[in-house]
């Protein structure tokens, strides 16, 4: 087991090194104009300058905060509404198809509506993030409830569990693997929408700084921003995976 995860880590690092090497080769050969496409060294320099100078750091924190707030909002609302719909077979039959229909609407289509109601504000961006990230969690909760072993509903009825107890003690834990996977997906969506929202509503953050860098041809700064976005996404998803493994320890023994 240990050996295996170490090998995976090494392989991952090797792939990353290879990627940077190819990146360097491509830029050194000047296949694309350096004005638009900086090499790894210049990107790293911009990263270092931005993070030590503070500007990039505060922007990152802004974006991370936005992402987390929107994601938390979406998680609570998604799982709560999902539980209400999911626990009743009838509600599932009535409401779930409509939700499936609404789901593929791109969250960015919500932005004009949100702007109309909330203007170019931080709240507007928050609402867009929450709305976009809501869907996977809402639907995962509903599907998770629907997929619960029917025998367990019978067990709960025979034991005389209240509806609240059924949700809290049976349906939510049973749907937990699906919900946790959707939380991870939701975090990615939150990050994307935080960046898009910042660009559109020009709120402080990585999105805005990337846009500004691109408009003034500071390609190294632009790439530095993108690298940070990638890192934020990676760290977030890793943290959630870690939490997932801890919460789903009982599943590990099942395999």
């Amino acid at each position: 087991m240990k050996n295996f995860s170490l090998r995976k880590l090494l392989l991952g690092c090797a792939t990353l090194v290879l990627f940077i090497l190819v990146w360097k080769l491509v830029t050194d050969a000047k296949l694309i104009s350096p004005i638009f496409f900086p090499g790894p060294e210049r990107t790293y320099a911009a990263l270092e300058k931005g993070l030590s100078g503070g500007a990039l750091l505060t922007q990152t924190l802004e974006t991370v905060q936005r992402m987390l707030l929107g994601w938390l909002l979406a998680s609570f609302v998604g799982v709560f509404l999902g539980s209400l719909v999911g626990i009743s077979k009838r509600a599932r039959a009535f409401i779930a198809p409509t939700l499936e229909l609404l789901r593929p609407l791109p969250a960015s289509a919500m932005i004009p509506i949100a702007i109309a109601f909330l203007g170019f504000s931080d709240n507007m961006v928050l609402v867009v993030i929450a709305f976009g990230a809501l869907w996977p969690m809402l639907l995962a909760t509903i599907h998770g409830f629907a997929a619960m072993e029917p025998r367990l509903y019978e067990v709960s009825a025979v034991l005389g569990l209240s509806r609240g107890q059924v949700i809290w003690k049976l349906a939510l834990p049973s749907a937990m693997p699906m919900i946790l996977a959707s939380l991870r997906l939701g975090l990615t969506i939150s990050l994307i929408l935080a960046v898009v929202g910042e660009m559109l509503a020009s709120r402080a953050g990585l999105g805005q700084s990337i846009l500004a860098a691109s408009r003034s041809f500071r390609s190294a700064d632009l790439f530095a921003g993108i690298v940070i976005l990638g890192a934020v996404g990676l760290v977030g998803s890793r943290l959630l995976s870690f939490g997932e493994r801890r919460l789903l320890r009982w599943q590990a023994v099942n395999r």
Partner: peptide
Amino acid sequence: NRSVAIVFQDYGKALLPW
């Protein structure tokens, strides 16, 4: 009804795996 308990034949499904 709580006063009537049943031991199901398919024990694997009747327990909470978590």
